[in-house]
């Protein structure tokens, strides 16, 4: 196995005395696609936010290419370009056009206009005609694709995706999942928290089932979905199958 892109070692995190992550260990290989599943409140979002330093961890290590970015005082600025994150609620900047949403960070952080690269991204994800529109003129699916493009424009090596289809009307989910399929085909390293079980089964290299702040079970999608070992996993899969 090659050196992992991202490793978590004994990561814990509490909010007001409630321990939300209770010792997470995880290795993510370059190009791997990991799907996080688990009940709402099990800690998936918190885990993703700890992976890029948006939430400081209480204890443990978060190693990005072997460098501990969870060390207190570590300068996360440069790291953030290497890890893109997309949120459930898009969080586009409402006062900017789709294009400006995407172009802002390359312009300010990388110091490049990147016009052609950005236009190519819009074209690739079927939004070439929508670059000049404001977020509120776009459908949810289009907004979420812009959010993905915005993260990709920083040329990240890893993408964290937090239930990015959960706020969408059912008929719009497909277009966003297509984007993820293409990123996977590009070999992007991805960690995806999702409730789309059939999608996880289709694309994931590995499925991680989280329960009450710990990794309760993990394995290939085939194993987790067809032959879950733990009672908690079986129970969760039954509850979402309904």
């Amino acid at each position: 196995m090659p050196d992992p892109r991202l490793s978590l070692r004994g990561v814990t995190k509490s909010f007001d005395d409630v321990q939300v992550l209770r010792g997470i260990d995880m290795d993510i290989a370059p190009g791997e696609m990991v799907c996080l599943i688990g009940a709402s409140g099990s800690g998936k979002s918190t885990l993703l936010r700890c992976m890029n330093g948006l939430e400081p961890v209480d204890d443990g290590e978060v190693l990005l290419d072997g460098v501990d970015i969870a060390e207190p005082g570590f300068d996360l600025g440069p790291i953030r370009q290497r890890i893109g994150i997309v949120f459930q609620s898009f969080n586009l900047f409402p006062h900017m056009t789709a294009y400006d949403n995407v172009a802002l960070a390359p312009r300010r952080v990388l110091g490049e206009e990147a016009r052609e690269r950005i236009e190519a991204l819009f074209a690739r994800f079927g939004l070439a005609d929508h670059m000049r529109k404001y977020p509120d003129q776009l459908s949810g699916g289009q907004q979420q694709r812009v959010a993905v493009i915005r993260a990709l424009a920083m040329r990240p090596q890893t993408m964290l995706l937090d239930e990015i289809t959960s706020a969408l009307d059912p008929e719009l989910v497909g277009e966003v999942l297509d984007v993820l399929r293409r990123l996977r085909d590009d070999g992007m390293t991805m960690v995806l928290a999702t409730h789309e079980m059939s999608f996880a089964r289709e694309v994931a290299d590995r499925v991680v089932f989280m329960d009450q702040g710990v990794v309760a079970e993990e394995g290939t999608p085939e194993r987790i979905f067809s032959d879950p070992q733990r009672a908690r996993t079986q129970q969760f899969l039954r509850s979402v199958a309904r």
């Binding site: 890029n52 948006l54 953030r80 802002l104 960070a105």
Partner: peptide
């Protein structure tokens, strides 16, 4: 706060 988070996660400085 989600607006600030989104900006920070793109690598923008506090100032920007």
């Amino acid at each position: 706060a989600s607006q600030r988070n989104a900006a920070i996660c793109l690598g923008l400085s506090e100032r920007d």
